[in-house]
Design a protein around this nucleic acid. Structure first.
Length: 689
DNA sequence: GCGGATCAC
DNA sequence: TATGGTGATCCGC
């Protein structure tokens, strides 16, 4: 705004520190952005992190200047040529426009924070954040009024809002509620795409047609049902493609919706004044480049400057920008995709101590190997990732002749890579494996429930270790778990993973956990049929239409019918013949005493957490009371169970499966310490706010 | 094939 | 005191 930037910078230096925390997001309306920016600046100033941010900022400016000068060198002939190229491409893209589908994007409001408030109603109305002093995952709307937001370190958030309450994350709760929402989603679109724990895309074309209702009607009904079944609110966007639906769901958040009609004029009007930053795939850097080089801030301007864009950017990037300008986005039912890499990384307090570094590398290698073996993968390219104590990130890769997956093989190569970097002071080490063995790629798709289970198991060991090691910022496995769930890897489970028994304690699952080969031959064949080779090489066009050329993880998610944490389901097993009175079957002393005070007030409201579930939602009620049972078992036995190895845990589970209530209780105890609250973690779930 | 960067969640 | 982890993709070599 101010032209006298030099002056204003020296008087108000925080104005030149461009954090992401002051971006306009839902719930940030009344925020004093100047104050937030000043405090963030003051808390960050002088830190290694801050210095690195400044370095990155300088690089970005350089990039803008470089492109600007390239732009200035274009001759009138050049410009004329590239404009023709762009116009032709625009016409081609326009011809692909498909207004026949109705997409709905659902986004839970402040999901983790809302769930925590549900389980502890005393939090209601108070500023609260899920996370730790190091990092915040989600903040509720009361906290957002102070400028507190996801991805902000807790110590800065506390400065902004001294009364801010911190709640440690509890993924088990989130996945439980996530599953309740997904049951609702599934009833509208059995093939819906889960984008994360709290976000999903639904193709509601058929529902609208069959019931002769509008997309807006469905959105209202779906949101209402989600609220009935979970007590949580969500926001929805309806539009002719996923890109637009996603933008729409952000407009009336929280607890609102916005419908964009399947009409070309409506789309063009909507998109014209839309800031480019609202588009998925356009982040801080791209926004700055487009603004700085071409003066582009709205989607409409992407078309107006199309000639310059096609002159300076690659085909695929240009296609993306032009598609956005036209309001095009993915309308297809997504194809199956396969994992291309698998990784494990961990942040710790910076050190240059070789023994410590080797120890960290050893842990990472072990985790990575375990993950790979769970999925039956082996790869031949290993990438070492390092973050120095000054936050500089480096990667070093090595491609081998043979495929590897054992810890020893991984560690051997990793050590070679690391040694070449010494001496160095590090705060993060990571390992990534890619270039998977071809025949194993097919086996990659898996039932995420199993992965989840396995990750839960390891998470327990890791958290125990972290508690023992105060210097560790750890909890990588919790993060890992979370990301596994978020990334979802959905295949169309209706077509593929059909050996799913639905029984979480099914011994098949346990053996899968160990050997990682969950796919039957039949599955393999079907996957090959579904796999679209175009996803590997081109399809600039397809990508374009999906309007997400880079960074987009339109990974499909593997949705299953059994994403309830298996611990909860195991409680369900206690039930006999549909009897919903858990006490009748739970002879286990601990179990009965733990849920005896759960009653349905006025026959619809849970006396423990206030969630509202009508009496005809019998199964949901049972799951809900099971949830409280598991929660209490966890609390009650917290810290009483000695740490056990992953393998021991698995064995113990098998015993439990075969035995009766006494051992069930034991199992609960053994599973519970997987969820010890961990101080450090990070999961950005509500960054759209 | 490598390394840096960007993006999303 | 203190600023995350996983996965994908693109660009320029």
């Amino acid at each position: 705004m101010e032209k006298s930037e030099g002056t204003s910078d020296s008087q108000r230096p925080w104005q030149s520190y461009h954090t992401v925390y002051t971006n306009a997001k839902a719930g940030m309306d009344g925020v004093d952005k100047e104050k937030v920016q000043r405090i963030v600046y003051e808390m960050s100033k002088g830190s290694k992190y801050f210095e690195n941010e400044e370095r990155k900022e300088a690089i970005m400016k350089q990039k803008v200047e470089h492109m600007h000068s390239r732009c200035a060198k274009l001759t009138p002939a050049d410009i004329s040529h590239y404009q023709k190229v762009a116009d032709k491409r625009i016409a081609e893209l326009e011809a692909t426009r498909d207004l026949s589908r109705i997409w709905l994007h659902v986004d839970m409001d402040a999901f983790y924070a809302a769930v925590e408030t549900l389980s502890d109603p005393s939090l209601k109305g108070k500023p609260m954040a899920v996370g730790s002093m190091s990092m915040i995952s989600t903040a509720n709307y009361e906290a957002r009024k102070f400028g507190v937001r996801a991805a902000m370190p807790g110590f800065i958030a506390r400065k902004l809002c001294p009364d801010l309450l911190f709640v440690p994350p509890d993924f088990k709760k989130y996945t439980y509620y996530c599953d309740l929402t997904r049951k609702v989603f599934r009833s509208y679109d059995p093939n819906f795409m889960a984008a994360s724990l709290d976000e999903a895309y639904l193709d509601i074309t058929e529902v609208c047609r069959a019931r002769d209702v509008t997309g807006g009607d469905i959105a209202e009904e779906l949101r209402s049902r989600v609220h009935e079944e979970t007590g949580l609110t969500c926001s929805a966007g309806v539009g002719p493609n996923r890109l637009l639906a996603k933008v729409c769901s952000d407009i009336n958040k929280p607890n609102g919706q916005f419908v964009l009609p399947n009409d070309r004029m409506a789309v063009m009007t909507f998109i014209s004044s839309l800031p480019i930053r609202k588009i998925g795939g356009i982040g801080k850097v791209t926004e700055n480049v487009l603004k700085g080089v071409f003066g582009i801030s709205t989607c409409e301007e992407l078309l107006q400057k199309s000639g310059f864009l096609s002159a300076l950017f690659s085909h695929s990037t240009t296609d993306f920008f032009l598609s956005v300008g036209l309001g095009l986005g993915g309308t297809d039912t997504p194809q199956v995709r396969f994992r291309k890499s698998i990784s494990n990384e961990r942040t710790f307090s910076a050190t240059d101590d070789l023994n410590l570094l080797y120890q960290k590398l050893d842990e990472i290698a072990e985790n990575l190997s375990a993950d790979m073996q769970e999925e039956g993968l082996s790869g031949r390219t290993l990438t070492l990732k390092l973050k120095t104590s000054s936050f500089e990130v480096r990667t070093r890769a090595l491609t081998l002749q043979k495929y590897i997956c054992s810890k020893d093989d991984i560690l051997k190569s990793a050590l070679k890579l690391l040694k070449a970097e010494l001496p160095v002071s590090l705060r993060l080490i990571g390992l990534r494996m890619s270039h998977f063995k071809e025949e194993e790629k097919v086996a990659v798709p898996f039932d995420p429930t199993q992965k989840t289970l396995a990750a839960f198991v390891r998470a327990g060991d890791a958290s125990r270790n972290n508690l023992d090691d105060e210097s560790s910022l750890g909890s990588v496995d919790e993060l890992h778990l979370m990301n596994e769930m978020e990334n979802d890897f959905r295949l169309d489970h209706h077509k593929i993973c059909h050996h799913e028994s639905g029984d979480p304690l099914d011994s098949n699952h346990l053996s899968d956990l160990n050997c990682g080969s969950c796919n039957s031959q039949k599955n393999v064949v079907e996957q090959e049929k579904i796999h679209d080779p175009s996803s590997d090489e081109i399809a600039g066009e397809e990508k374009t239409i999906d309007a997400q050329p880079k960074g987009k993880q339109m990974l499909q998610l593997l949705e299953t019918d059994s994403s309830v944490p298996w611990e909860l389901k195991s409680c369900n097993l206690i039930r006999v013949n549909g009897n919903t009175d858990i006490h009748a079957q739970t002879n286990d002393v601990a179990s009965s005493s733990l849920t005896e005070d759960l009653v349905w007030v006025d026959d619809y409201k849970c006396s423990l957490c206030g969630i509202e579930l009508p009496s005809n939602f019998i199964e949901e009620r049972q799951e809900h009371s099971d949830f409280h049972l598991a929660e209490r078992l966890q609390k009650k036995e917290s810290g009483t169970c000695p740490p056990v190895s992953t393998r021991q845990r698995i064995v113990r589970k098998e015993e439990n499966t075969a035995n009766q209530s006494r051992q069930k209780k034991r199992k609960s105890a053994s599973t519970k310490d997987k969820y010890l609250p961990i101080d450090t973690f990070f999961v950005k779930s509500n960054q759209n706010f």
